[in-house]
Amino acid sequence: MDVNMLQNILLTIATASTPLLLAAIGELVVERSGVLNLGVEGMMVIGAVCGFAGAFITGSPWIGALAGILAGVLLSLLFGFLALSLATNQVATGLSLTLLGIGLSGMIGEDFVGRAGIRLPRLDLPVLSDLPLVGKLLFGQDPLFYVSIALTAAVMWFLFKTRTGLTLRSIGDNHKSAHALGINVLLYRYLAVMFGGACAGLAGAHLSLVYTPQWVENMTAGRGWIALALVVFASWRPWRVIGGAYLFGAVTIGQIHAQALGIPIPSQLMSALPYLATIVVLVLISRDRRLTVINTPASLAQPFVPDR
């Protein structure tokens, strides 16, 4: 295997990992505020179709990406209205968001099936991008790759170095205490949920504008759920999400390459690998009950109704 091929494989892994990282880092912030939004898959698939549609109609993939973000935010607001303002069961509400998202995306995307998409251009810097070995890896990837890394760093800084981040974490730990101190619990949670929606929408747009620039129904194929698992896997710590996302990206790319090489294992089994890997990883990380208790935001998925 020569160096260029290795670089290419690494590039595809990064491309496969970026949407997972984007969606997971958004959901991480949501869960740190004590809200469990199981609708990531739904917001992602809506982001994918709206991203594609935005780019297809305007001709600009950038507008497509914005459309994806916007669609994710809108859907997350629907979740917020129910789970936050109406204090509904978060598990059921998140599920319904996913079902609705899949349904809506199928309806919106009907006219776009089979159309050629527009790809977000890769970064191309003179000289730098052509450096051997690392040129393309560091300076030649799609813009959303850089966004995902920067976003992760920003979330780390926000959660652990700013007072607003501290407040957000405190709400996730104990919303009753936070309310008693006069923190506007619902406002923080709305903002967190919207951030999660934006990230999931952008992650979806990455699928239809970078990963495979086209619209295929259900093209997220469970990536939203894997992102949810990644948050658990990362023990709600941003830097670990990067590791988890790239691990899954590698598994996904690995099985595709293995299929291409004609390894005599049924393709369906290979395709099932990322899902099986998710289960295995979840088992490994959750085994230690003590650690799980310490790491999980204590008010996660608990509805909160302020009394006044």
Binding site: R163, T164, L166, R169, S170, D173, S177, A178
Partner: peptide, 23 residues
């Protein structure tokens, strides 16, 4: 000072105190 305290178990004492002060 609340009877059932308004504290956060996953945060340190000084973080708990900092929450009521401005940035």
């Amino acid at each position: 000072v609340f009877q059932h305290f308004s504290l956060f178990e996953a945060l340190t004492a000084s973080e708990n105190i900092a929450l009521v002060f401005d940035e």
